[in-house]
């Protein structure tokens, strides 16, 4: 009897150990390529069967920044990101308001169409975009690349902001009117603060999407609008692995910073602005 119990307990602990091991393995599996790249970006003379690089150096970063023209590329990426965020957020606010506050006929169908660019394969979509942009001469302009990004950022913004507007309490808006606020004041003092968390969330998501966007950029960029992901990809073709790795790491840093920001700031309860007693 006791033997059986001990056996069962052993089994249970065994499961736990196994599960834990699997989790750790998975993390390593996910992180391994990145660690590899990170190591390579600071290693020197790392050839053959060596486990670790024999020498560490920051040289590759210097090279990457100089040869890869990173400041210029970073500037492009940011300009494009800011334009894409601005346009998507404006679209998101208006469309989200329409979706969230109004009884639209055929609402579901409209929403499906809005989400379509996210559903069809990016390359398919990108080809179409490129074709149109060539005729409009939007290729290799910051605005052009940003607009291409909008096609994937805007659906996100619309989705997030529709939910935000839907969560707005009609009675609170009524209260503002009865208190004497006209439409403009009501918007600035009540509506805007209440949807601000949603706007911030949608801006963050839009920015990360634009920042990481590759396929759409590849088909619309030009010499003046190289972005970080594209530059990194081009560096692969040049064959200098160390430099490419350094670029890849540089590219990750802002993403991590944004992730940290989201984790710190975007508390779920802040996103809904709910209140007790209803």
């Amino acid at each position: 009897m006791t033997l059986l119990k001990a056996y069962l307990r052993g089994l249970r602990e065994g499961w736990f150990v196994l599960g834990y091991t699997l989790c750790v393995c998975l993390s390593v599996f996910i992180l391994a390529p990145f660690l590899m790249i990170a190591l390579r970006s600071v290693g020197k003379g790392w050839f053959g069967k060596l486990w670790l690089p024999p020498q560490l150096t920051w040289d590759w970063y210097r090279w990457a920044i100089e040869v890869g023209n990173i400041p210029e590329v970073m500037k492009n990426t940011l300009i494009i990101g800011v334009i894409a965020v601005a346009v998507s957020t404006v679209i998101g606010i208006f469309a989200g308001w329409a979706f969230g506050r109004r009884q639209l006929p055929g609402k579901e169908l409209l929403m499906a169409i809005v989400l379509l660019p996210r559903m069809i394969p990016p390359i398919t979509y990108a080809l179409g975009v490129a074709k149109i942009f060539y005729t409009l001469e939007l290729v290799d302009t910051h605005l052009g690349v940003a607009l291409a990004h909008v096609s994937v950022c805007a659906p996100f913004a619309i989705l997030v902001l529709s939910a935000t507007f839907e969560g707005l309490d009609e009675r609170v808006l009524e209260a503002a009117s009865v208190c004497g606020a006209n439409t403009v004041k009501r918007f600035f003092y009540v509506v805007l603060p209440l949807i601000m968390p949603g706007i911030l969330a949608s801006m963050l998501f839009s920015f990360t999407h634009s920042y990481n966007e590759f396929t759409l950029t590849l088909l619309t960029y030009g010499p003046n609008t190289v972005t970080l992901p594209v530059r990194t990809y081009l560096a692969v073709g040049d064959g200098y692995w160390e430099i490419t790795s350094a670029m890849a790491v540089i590219m990750v840093v802002p993403s991590l910073a944004i992730l940290a920001m989201i984790q710190r700031r975007a508390k779920p309860e802040k996103l809904v602005g709910g209140f007790k007693g209803v």
Binding site: V172, E174, S177, V178, N182, R186, P193, L194, G277, V278
Partner: peptide, 20 residues
């Protein structure tokens, strides 16, 4: 006349305070 020009005070059935 628009709501905001009617100069009324109202206590709402569900409070309707400004949560922010």
């Amino acid at each position: 006349v628009a709501t905001h020009q009617r100069e009324l005070g109202m206590v709402f059935q569900n409070f309707a305070l400004f949560p922010h």
